[in-house]
């Protein structure tokens, strides 16, 4: 791929052809405030915060401007400062005011931008604050949708369309009344939503937040135990408890994406009813046994059967090696082709 050189705030930056000015700047470690940009999604240029000045062209948004050889970019000017500051202030006075009660506190993009721009309380006081209060959609067992914290960046809408392909939500109405909505503003569970949480993972503010998630003390790289796809993930752990799961962006299998089970279905890991030893039925009830006891019992009983009397079902959740072994056993030892698998086992 062709590389290009451009100047951002006097610094020479190398970029690849096809990158936007915003991407080139971020990659070079130069921060430009942005809210609707997400590296996984096509740029739309609606938050109007990533303004820059380009020599010969004037002020424009950097997320929709492709880099060009020799381009001279400035990230600060009085015009940029005015347009951006007022836009951020307007977002704040139209946003839920209580940051401390927000699950995104500390990880919120709006906070990040506000800190960068520098918010002055006296300036906010002059503006008319919103008095609107919209109902929160708590129909989904895994996440909450709070329109009062939404900045309408559209990342959730684009994620659902471009990445998930479900398009369960879209913009509805217009102007100040614009909201992100399902058909008829029904609860999200009554839509095509698959609860995969991809939108939740990308929401830059507190509009989409997981219901039962806590910040982990550390993360463990792992592979999802649910199906045969083998999505890479990070288990967020506190003590010995999994409190959060996130997709591993570097995994070539899923590139950070997860489904509802992989992301939210980790409750079984620390569940009190989870089996931790084999059980053998004795006198009509299951009793705990060691692995040796259990395997001896299975081997002894299998000895009584051969050929088509036997069938084996394996699981896509097993490794390839395990599945190979079982089919080998079925065919070579038990003498039958009766082997199948099911991804849900």
């Amino acid at each position: 791929m062709k590389t290009l050189r451009l100047t951002i705030d006097g610094v020479t930056v190398t970029a690849r052809e096809g990158m936007s000015v915003l991407e080139a700047a971020l990659e070079a470690g130069i921060y430009i405030p942005h809210l609707c940009h997400h590296p996984d999604l096509k740029p739309v240029g609606v938050c109007r915060l990533c303004l820059v000045e380009i020599a010969g062209r004037g002020m424009t948004i950097s997320c929709k401007t492709p880099v060009e050889e020799g381009m001279v970019v400035k990230t600060e000017s009085p015009d940029i400062e005015l347009a951006r500051r007022v836009a951020v202030e307007l977002l704040i006075v139209n946003h839920h005011a209580d940051c401390l009660s927000c699950a995104k506190d500390g990880a919120c993009k709006l906070q990040e931008i506000a800190r960068y721009v520098g918010i002055e309380e006296e300036r906010l006081q002059r503006l008319r604050r919103t008095t609107r209060s919209l109902p929160v959609d708590s129909s989904n067992p895994f996440f909450l949708r709070d329109p009062n914290r939404c900045v309408l960046c559209g990342i959730c809408v684009r994620t659902c369309e471009e990445i998930v392909g479900a398009s369960a939500i879209d913009y509805a109405f217009r102007g100040y009344a614009t909201v992100i909505s399902t058909l008829g503003n029904r609860p999200i569970v009554q839509s095509r939503c698959e609860s995969c949480g991809e939108c939740v993972a990308r929401c830059p503010v507190g509009a989409l937040v997981p219901r039962q998630e806590r910040n982990p003390a550390r993360e463990v790289r792992s592979v999802c135990a649910y199906c045969g796809v083998g999505c890479g993930l990070y288990l967020g752990v506190r003590g010995n408890q999994v409190v959060r799961v996130r997709g591993a962006a570097e995994s070539p299998v899923n590139r950070g994406r997860l489904c509802v089970k992989g992301r939210y279905g980790h409750g079984y890991i620390g569940h009190p009813e989870r089996l931790t030893t084999p059980l053998i039925k004795r006198d009509g009830r299951f009793v705990e046994a060691s692995w040796d006891e259990a395997l001896d019992l299975v081997a002894a009983r299998l000895a009584g059967y051969r050929g088509d009397q036997f069938a084996a079902l394996t699981s896509a959740r097993c490794t390839n090696e395990e599945n190979y072994l079982l089919q080998k056993f079925t065919r070579a030892v038990m003498g039958t082709h009766n082997i199948d698998h099911c991804a849900r086992l």
Partner: peptide, 12 residues
């Protein structure tokens, strides 16, 4: 067309 988009258009 996804129904959310039909509603999105109609409400616009």
């Amino acid at each position: 067309v996804p129904e959310s988009q039909v509603y999105g258009v109609a409400s616009f």
